[in-house]
């Protein structure tokens, strides 16, 4: 800006340099929105507590796999005496490892990754319920949207940026660490593990993609609709906790058809994820469960509904 003591009669733009280059397309702006949104997710101290829990789950699986594999190579057939006197007990190492395997399932199988996704999804649900208002709702509520929408972007680019941020976050919490676990198990087992279980890698990626698409679209739709944190938490709790309780109540207590479990979105994600990982449907608990294609249809319906709602909002919502 020209200084105040500059000649008033002939103001000159001494420092203004007009832009002579070529601007990139709106996709570049989409990345910028995604980066800012991820930055917002990483800024909150409360979330770091949840990220800590998530990291501990990952480390449990990471070192658990290694420990189990190491134990298998170290044990001998002789029973081991644990403790002394009356509190002592004799255990067979082979059976101990077998029991650990049965309970923890840290064996690089589909169970390992299904369990890992399931635990991590719970953290993701909580973070997304809390972050929805921060990521999108506040832009609508406090009027910062004009800054975005006055730039060379379409509304879809704005939502695309937010979706990329949510997707990146979900995959950083689930798919990427799951792939690391897959790679780790191959290294502590044999190289054949990779070739024999290539379908697991595809399953991990597919499970991550399903989580990303469903939760991303659902988050965008609910956050543009509700805008505030408390209503967001209430709706997500209803969708992912009360719906599960209601489904259980209908099927187990009221003895209604098992397809009533389809109202439980979390369970639907779990069923489809189980199918992606090539796991037997009968391993799901509690039984009976809806078929994967039925759960898949529900997820498609949820995604379509969210996309249609977003499309309507984009056409109708205007920056007020």
């Amino acid at each position: 800006m020209t200084s105040t003591d500059s000649p008033r009669s002939a103001p000159v733009l001494l420092t203004y340099r007009p832009w002579r280059g070529t601007l990139g397309g709106p996709l570049r702006g989409t990345w910028a929105i995604a980066r800012v949104s991820l930055f917002l997710l990483l800024r909150r101290k409360l979330f770091w507590a949840l990220y800590g829990v998530s990291a501990m789950i990952f480390l449990l699986f990471f070192y658990g796999q290694y420990l189990q594999s190491w134990l298998q190579t170290q044990i001998q057939d002789e029973p081991i005496r644990l403790g002394s006197g009356v509190v002592g007990a004799t255990v067979k190492p082979v059976e101990l490892v077998k029991m650990l395997k049965t309970i923890l399932r840290l064996d690089g199988s589909g169970y390992t990754f299904r369990n890992f996704f399931n635990y991590q999804s719970q953290i993701i649900m909580i973070v997304l319920a809390l972050a929805g208002a921060i990521l999108i709702g506040n832009d609508f509520r406090f009027g910062s949207l004009p800054f975005y929408l006055s730039k060379p972007l379409h509304r879809w680019h704005y939502l695309g940026g937010k979706f990329i941020a949510v997707g990146a976050f979900i995959n950083l919490m689930t798919t990427l660490p799951a792939i690391v676990l897959f790679a780790e198990y191959g290294m502590i087992d044999t190289w054949e593990y990779y070739t024999d279980n290539a379908h697991l890698l595809l399953g991990i990626v597919a499970y991550g993609a399903i989580l990303t698409t469903t939760l991303g679209l659902l988050l965008l739709a609910t956050a543009t609709w509700l805008r505030r944190t408390v209503p967001m938490i209430m709706v997500w709790t209803a969708l992912f906790a009360f719906a599960r309780m209601l489904g259980d109540l209908m099927v187990l207590s009221l003895r209604l058809d098992h397809r009533w479990r389809l109202i439980d979105l979390w369970n639907d994600l779990y069923i489809v994820g189980n199918w992606c990982l090539g796991m037997d449907h009968s391993t799901l608990r509690p039984q009976p469960q809806p078929a994967p294609w039925q759960a898949g249809l529900v997820l498609v319906a949820v995604c379509l509904t969210s996309a249609i709602y977003l499309n309507r909002r984009i056409q109708a919502v205007e920056v007020a």
Binding site: L23, G24, P26, G29, K151
Partner: peptide, 10 residues
């Protein structure tokens, strides 16, 4: 700077 990136600048 973020707004500049939204404009499409490298």
């Amino acid at each position: 700077e973020t707004m500049a990136r939204l404009c499409g600048f490298t």
